[in-house]
Nucleic acid binder design. Sequence first.
RNA 1: GCCGAAGUGGCGGAAUUGGUAGACGCGCUGGACUCAAAAUCCAGUGGGGCGAAAGUCCCGUGUGGGUUCGAUUCCCACCUUCGGCACCA
Length: 793
Amino acid sequence: MDTYDPQAIETKWQRVWEDARAFYVDNPPPGASPNGEYYMLEMLPYPSGHLHMGHVLNYTLGDVVTHFQRRNGLRVLRPMGYDSFGLPAENAAIKEGGHPREIVESNIANIERQMRRLGWAIDWDRVIAAHDPAFYRWTQWLFLRFLEQGLAYRKEAPVNWCPNDQTVLANEQVVDGKCERCGAVVEARKMEQWFFRITAYADALLDDHDLIDWPERTKTIQRNWIGRSEGAELLFRIDELDVDVPVFTTRPDTVFGATFFALAPEHPLVDTMVERSPNGDQIREYVRTSMAKRVEERATDEKSGVFTGFFATNPATDARIPVWVADYVLMEYGTGALMAVPGQDERDGAFAERFELPVTQVIDEEQGVLVDSAQFSGMPVDEGRPAIVEWLGDRGRGRPAVSFRLRDWGFSRQRYWGCPIPVVYCGECGIVPVPDDELPVILPEVEDYRPKGKPPLASNEEWLRVPCPRCGAEGTREAETMDTFVDSAWYFLRYCDPENDQEPFARRLADFWAPIDQYIGGIDHATGHLMYSRFFVKVMNELELVGFREPFQRLFHQGWVRQGGTKMSKSRGNVTAPDELAEMYGADAVRLYILFAGPADQDMDWTEEGVEGIARFLRRLWRIVHEAAAGDVAAADGASLVRKAHETIAKVGDDIGRRFVFNTPIAAVMELINELGRDPSAPGARFAAETAVSLIQPYAPHVAEELWEALGHSRLWEEPWPVADESHLRRETFELVIQVNGRVRDRVEASADESEDALVARAKASERVQAQLDGKEIRQAIVVPGKLVNLVV
RNA sequence: GCCGAAGUGGCGGAAUUGGUAGACGCGCUGGACUCAAAAUCCAGUGGGGCGAAAGUCCCGUGUGGGUUCGAUUCCCACCUUCGGCACCA
């Protein structure tokens, strides 16, 4: 027996698998229908310099599932790609020189080397990268389909503006209201932006949660993010302007208490009021100052506002109530106007107090009934709500309505390193899509991709100026690029057909492999990537590009790997290089350790203490399996080791397959090895050794393969997953726990076929029980068959 | 403020449907091997009381209550930590 040399073993088997194309899967011929396929996917990495332990956890989890499902007879598609557009590479290029492309491509090469070093079972024929024109051509193609459907559009909207860097910042670049890079305070600025109409799918995104097997907390986060509120839209008339102004409210039952009316500073009516009101200057000044405020300031500052001089008619009371402009009213939510009920709403109350406006109580909180509400007084709140809406509806003043918190997805970026948006602006025709056959619009070289107040592409005049595809007049290309979340909203379908140069993917191949059977990634993407991908698939489904409505059937979130209390991520430098760890202990040890450290869905603090214990386990496994392999191949039915092996098979299969937990199977195999180690030549030793090696293979595939050969077999990666034999699990005797009043007092060996009465008799006969009973009367005896007897005295 | 998750030895954690709390590992202690060390192997290891010992009793899963023959597990209240949302009408 040689000593365990992980480096040599791992190099050897990685070559064998690659030569055998062990983990590559071919696409089916036309006409084939799905038959036992499994699509396993982890969120694709951003190609920063190197992998960190968080990646190792993510991809090792996926790897265990991949091996497990493969050996359970499924054809597993498990591809890999790179989210290679985006700000970090661009910022690195600005800081360190070089081109973002060179940076990500060298990073990709390094990451792929690290991934191969860890021995992950990946189909390397299907690699994609967001910045590859062969990929982003189809990102552009999909954008054009959304544009045709009216699902991509431009509108003016507030963005984060850094006055120092002269650029728009993505939300994730704003930290505590300041620019991540230069520290300048970020301003809100109104700019025209591209949006995807995700709000049109708000109800579908909520309803289709029923179709998918996701963690409840993730669905909850998405539900809160979508923020569906049921209520009513009520009309308040402003006679002087001859307009009906709609408001949204979730509390139509409080309408009798609406004593003033408030408009957002951005509300379109405000302009008219400025013109017609005697204190127009005051209103204009108020609007100007509140628009200059950051959203945060508007939320935290004391309530402010200005009276417009106009009055609105409360549709319930017919009272004329004053109309104010107040910046606690948000244009983005509801209708940008609200009926203020200071008696019931805390914010309206604070405003009324500040400006000495009348307050009316219309709900008796203790009784839960309406008061001072005309014919509705005395009615319970729940009944009053629909009754008032119906009554106002009859008078043409209201109707039931639903409002959402969800906003459309602003996806344009005034930055260089992203997918170009394939449209041309023409003075005659407006926004004109680039024809499909002219795609891709290649991201051109620019002299300087630092942000300078306009998109870097706008300074490449030669590229920018093109004839309008429709009328031929001189036009200009869109110089903004797409948010990288657009790339990742559909990448998982490209893996199904990565070489296709006629379409993003053939529908038959997407429908063959997808939806993804198991997706694994961080919960931090709950409201971003996971929402956008669902939206994209719903649209693609309506366009008949795919036959399904949800991209990710099952979802699992791995926990954060922290180091010294902060989370490891691409933007922080606190990383332990996994390949260095693999050089020290071997990839198998690294893989085992990251999964043994705790439950995979819980956050963990990274520490290298304990990795020695795993290395020790692997050396023990190596020695004990070799010792067992040298022993006789003896028939061993009924041997304790054989039963232990079958118990371990049952435990590991149930843990990985049903419970989706990954730390306890390792402990179970350790237990088996501990028992085997006590006597490696005992009856059943050989079977126990084979079982341990087979069960540990998804975690530590290299050493498992080597030991499988030592046991006289080959190609463990193709070996069917072991099945526990029920007959070996049955026990003839068991340890009967005897309790008195719920406290364990004795344990005795009992036979599995004893009657309940016999077990109770055994319990009563126990000396220790006798000592406890001390002559007391037994009132009740509870028997749990196969486990315990509880005597109640 | 609202919504959600979690709290178990010195440490990471286990206990799957209400049924033996602390599996497995780290660390630590003692021993074997060794000139010595490392590595390896063996034994012990929640806290406390009584006992020379074998043992035996009590306490113990964030805190306080409750349901139950029996609660880490279920219910109520509270504390702490973490995450999401937050002037959303």
